[in-house]
Nucleic acid binder design. Structure first.
Lengths: 209, 209
DNA sequence: CCCTTGTGTAAGCACCTGCTTACATCACGG
DNA sequence: CCGTGATGTAAGCAGGTGCTTACACAAGGG
């Protein structure tokens, strides 16, 4: 089977650069999501990947570059594969589901836990935020459309912050459906083209120019 | 003028423990708000206070204890001096005003910038959050009252996060009145007893008891 | 006067961080 | 068989962190 370890089907038994590179990337994804950028050390990342930290630097150059690759890899799948009017709910449900499951997009979680870090990190996070906001902005018309999108995104991040990072009760263990319904109801006034399925929705009051 | 330096009107010219203790506390408040817990170093705090870091440890014991005193000092004035139905708007406006002015309560800003830190810090933040949420919970009835309060608080923090920490445009430089109006409109569905009013203060709608 | 007590300060310690270097080990080509 | 280059590893470096220790100065009382 295994062709040259360089080839395609990574055997990854012993000496396989591609394989260890991938393991490093996965381990970094996990640890950045669990602890944020600053508190996830390169030693821990390498250790979880079953590799040496020197390899990390050989393959990625620096911790920041590794962070960049992590964010670029998983961050935008969800963004592209979800229609705008469902993006908010999907992202919210992903956040509410928490980090338990594998395969879910944890890049927003990484954002939340990395906020206190250096300014360059904040820059990267702003980038991801702008991609989300850009999509959400299509749900509102008028000049305040992108501002409304920012506010919606703010709520999304705030909920994740309180639930995942701070673990404030009763939000931390509230039923995702309940939370979704409450948020969707209140958000109906903000993003006009959001599909209304929540319990409460008034008629939208006059819009502000 | 100056009585004994121990006395009341701190001359603080040379050897005044009370004075330097206060200066350390003030410097810590500023730096924690500017950089968060982790990135504010004891050396910087002592330096800004015009003191030596050894004094900081003599007076406060540890960096965490200093953080605790900072949070306990300024954190709850606003909370106690504001009637519940105006708490959200006051806190939101404080957040929107940003750190420019002195004297405003920056404890929420400290929270936002310190999130990535150690677990004990998250605990302290949860404490402040619960006090806010407890007050906000009085604005909704039913079983989901405190959950709605959590969601409102989440939005508050999320907005601060996007505006102050991430500096995402257009939210970062949006007009506070506009933001307040948008949020209040959407939040009317969530907190039933929130006073629905225009942007600026106007005369006090209902006075507190 | 000296001695005690409170205040301020410089230097250092132990640890952790991202990152680098020198060296072992394996695969493969001559 | 040996060399050559890619892969993996241990040890170390420079810098920063919270925190401690040993010491200098000022005030006041015996």
């Amino acid at each position: 089977m295994a062709k040259t370890p360089q080839g395609g089907t990574a055997n990854a038994s012993r000496r396989d650069a591609q394989g260890t590179r991938l393991r490093l990337l996965d381990a970094a994804s996990e640890l950045f999501a669990e602890r944020g950028y600053e508190r996830a050390t390169v030693r821990d990342i390498a250790s979880r990947a079953g590799a040496n930290q020197a390899l990390l630097f050989r393959y990625f150059g620096s911790k920041k570059a590794l962070f960049g690759e992590v964010m670029a890899r998983g961050g935008q799948e969800q963004l592209r594969s979800t229609p705008p009017e469902r993006l908010f709910e999907v992202a919210l449900r992903g956040m509410l589901a928490g980090g338990g499951k594998a395969g879910t997009d944890r890049s927003l979680e990484v954002c939340l836990r990395s906020i206190g870090g250096s300014d360059e990190i904040a820059e990267a996070l702003r980038g991801l935020g702008e991609e989300y906001a850009e999509v959400l902005a299509t749900l509102s018309e008028g000049e305040t459309g992108s501002l409304r999108a920012d506010l919606a995104l703010s709520w999304l991040l705030g909920i994740g912050l309180m639930r995942v990072v701070v673990a404030k009760e009763p939000l931390a263990s509230a039923d995702p459906d309940t939370v979704c319904a409450l948020v969707a109801g209140a958000l109906g006034n903000l993003l006009e083209n959001l599909p209304k399925n929540g319990p409460a929705d008034g008629e939208s009051a006059g819009n502000p120019e």
